[in-house]
Design a protein around this nucleic acid. Sequence first.
DNA 1: CATGCGATCCGCT
DNA 2: GCGGATCGCATGC
Length: 202
Amino acid sequence: MVAMGTGDTWDPVDRAVVAGDAWEVAPGLLHALLCVGNRVGRIVEVEAYGGSDDPASHAHRGRTDRNATMFGGPGLLYCYRSYGIHTCANVVTGSEGDGQAVLVRAVEPLGSEVELTAMRSERPAARRTVELANGPGKLCEALGITLDDDGTDLLDPHSRVTLRSDGMAPPHRVASGPRVGISRAVERPWRFWAPAIPYVSR
DNA sequence: CATGCGATCCGCT
DNA sequence: GCGGATCGCATGC
């Protein structure tokens, strides 16, 4: 059985953890907790996106109104609208001005039965718990992350959306492969996931 | 189970 | 105008 508790049961991760390059930070975020109030998801799949040197990154062509948060400094939450419909959530990494971020692609839903019920009601299409948050748009809908949360400091314990750790270490072995849904820089194996976990995407 | 497509936003061509 | 860091439904095997 998983640990139960509210989102503020645990401390936010240290900012130094997310101050490195995205491709180095990303696997270390596996098993961390993405918390929105009492809704909690354990991160089981991520993708790293670099700054101007990464053709697949939103930051590749520099700063715009949409991606400004990517340049705002490590620990911020960068939210963007995908395909006109879905919201995706990223943890900004590196140094201020870099434009690096880690996309959260899937979480294992945790929290109390009350919160799990709330998440299921957000996603009636999910027939099983495994399908609740096994995709970047799905997890935002299940947890209640919207574009209004863009720019949130995930490491401020008082923020509505936070990045925390309950002490569980990242997986001993991390699986990696090409990022999903991109056409450039496909050769970079910057998608990372916890192997043998049923909550990953696709 | 595999493939196709619509929804509909943002940034670049 | 078009191509995405997507998802869910419809269709057809």
